[in-house]
Each structure stands twice: as C-alpha cells, then as structure tokens.
C-alpha cells in the first residue's frame, strides 16, 4: 500500500528526537506547572487549605496555648509562629499527593503519557506549582503573626530566608506524598495514610510546646524528629537572625528525601497503567 503524504512528511522531514533534552524537560515541567495553576484559577476552593487554614490555625493555637505555655499570647508568639509555619506548610504538602491521585484518575494523564514529553514532567510540574501554595501559606501565617503582634527580631531578610527554608522543605516532603499519590488507589487513602504519618511528626515536635515539658520518652522522639530541627532552625533565623546546625540538618534531610522519593515516584508513575 502506498504511503501517504502525511506519513512521508512525518518520517522524512520531521525532526524526530531519541529522547527529550534537558531544555525540553524543563519546558515540559514549566508547562505542566502552568496547567496546574490554570486549573486552580477555575476552582479556587481547592486552595482553601492554604488560605483559610493558616489564618484559622494561627489564631486558634496562639490563643488556646498562649496563656498556658508562655504566660501570655505576646510571649508565645516567637515560639509558636515559626512552629505553626512549619506545621501548616508541611501539612499542606499532603495535598500534593491527594491532588496528584485525583488528577491521574481523570484520564488526561493518558494523554500526557502518550505525548512525546519528558516522563518526569507531569510529576515535577505538579510539585513545582505547589511551591506557590506553600508561599501563600507561609505569607498568610507570617502576616497573621504580625497582626497579632509578632515582631521577629532577625529582620526582614532573615525572615525571608526562613520562609524559603520552609518552602524548600515542604517541597522535599511533598515527594513522599507524591509517591503515595502515585501508588495509592484512591485520593482518600492518600489523605488517610499521609495524615497518619504527618500528625505524629508535626505534633510530637517542639513546634507548639517546649520539648522539656514532655515525658522523657517523648523528648527523645522530639529530639530526633526532623520537624523539630526545622522548627529550631526557623526560630533561630527569624527571632535572632542566626544560622545554626539545625539548618544544615534540615537541608540535608530535605535532600535525602528528594534523592530517595523522586526516583521512586517517577518509577512507580511509569509502571502504573
């Protein structure tokens, strides 16, 4: 049978590449992130967790625990605002996995898989777009703190650095939940599983209360909990403008998570039907 014009055109003159280049991979990732942000513009309620939650949580926890733990709300602010910042932003990263699962169930991912694009792009794009969510949650939490009277002594640059550290850490942690999102069967199970892991990690840390008030066994857990290190690093940065060893520990931890979970997630994604 004779070959058609289109086929000849495609096979002879089309620049067919063996694999996507680094530049193309980056372009595909940015396009996928753009797609995620476009979707949010249509369904803003999807971002309730980064808009309402930081406001409500900051108010609630500060006024509930303020008097009991620090004597008054004002003294509690330097302790709780960095703690809540970490809790809120890191918890937000659960949604990455949940939404990835929902997204993958819609069928549009079949098209992404059949397109000649970098395999990592749909995942990396979703995770990249989520850094915008972390930024919103970070700004709102800090703004609420400011409104309640929190005046971080580290100065604006140190606070910005602290915010960046939180966002980077949340992005790293989101690879764990992206992995759950890819392997789990339903969005609800991603949510459930992620909460079970993150709840103890965030609450059994020094985020809300000083560790020394806890029973001895818990103190050991709290000391080794990576969330505690992150909270301590943020407190040092925001409240005193100093950098301590906890910052290095946090960054190394974030890197380790990405190095383990990014390849795992991509492989699971490729294997999944």
């Amino acid at each position: 049978m004779s070959i058609s014009r289109l086929e000849r055109q495609a096979l002879e003159s089309r620049a067919i590449s063996r694999r996507p280049s680094f530049g193309q991979t980056l372009h595909h990732t940015l396009m996928m992130a753009y797609r995620t942000l476009l979707r949010v513009r249509r369904t803003p309620e999807q971002w309730a967790d980064v808009t309402f939650q930081p406001i409500v949580f900051t108010l609630m926890f500060t006024y509930i625990f303020g008097g009991a733990i620090a004597g008054n709300v004002q003294n509690y602010l330097p302790l709780i605002i960095p703690g809540l910042l970490v809790m809120t932003v890191v918890t937000t990263s659960i949604q990455t996995g949940v939404q990835l699962r929902e997204d993958m169930d819609t069928g549009v991912f079949d098209r992404f898989k059949s397109l000649p694009i970098a395999r990592i792009a749909p995942l990396a794009g979703a995770l990249l777009a989520d850094t915008v969510r972390y930024l919103i949650a970070t700004v709102l939490t800090l703004a609420m703190g400011y409104l309640m009277g929190y005046r971080p002594e580290g100065g604006i640059a140190a606070v910005a650095l602290a915010a960046l550290l939180v966002i980077v850490s949340a992005w790293a942690v989101s690879w764990i939940f992206a992995f759950f999102g890819v392997v789990a069967r339903t969005a609800a199970s991603v949510q459930g599983l992620s909460m079970v892991i993150l709840f103890p990690l965030t609450f059994l840390s020094n985020a809300l209360v000083p560790a020394k008030t806890l029973p001895h066994i818990l103190q050991i857990f709290v000391r080794f909990n990576p969330i505690s290190h992150l909270v301590t690093a943020i407190r040092a940065l925001a409240n005193t403008g100093t950098v301590n060893g906890n910052l290095a520990v946090s960054l190394i931890g974030a890197a380790v998570i990405v190095l383990i979970f990014a390849p795992l997630t991509v492989r699971a994604y490729m294997r999944k039907a």
Binding site: R39, T43, G107
Partner: peptide
C-alpha cells in the same frame, strides 16, 4: 525501546476523553 520516537508518530484518543475537565 524507542517509546519516545513512537510517541512523536502517534495520536491517541482514548475511550474516556483524555482532556482536562477544569480547563
């Protein structure tokens, strides 16, 4: 082994429309 090449030669319309509902 040449999946990326193949993807440049095909178009797929699935049983369940592979388009984005929210866009």
């Amino acid at each position: 082994s040449e999946a990326h090449v193949v993807r440049q030669l095909i178009g797929l319309t699935g049983q369940y429309a592979s388009v984005d509902d929210r866009l």
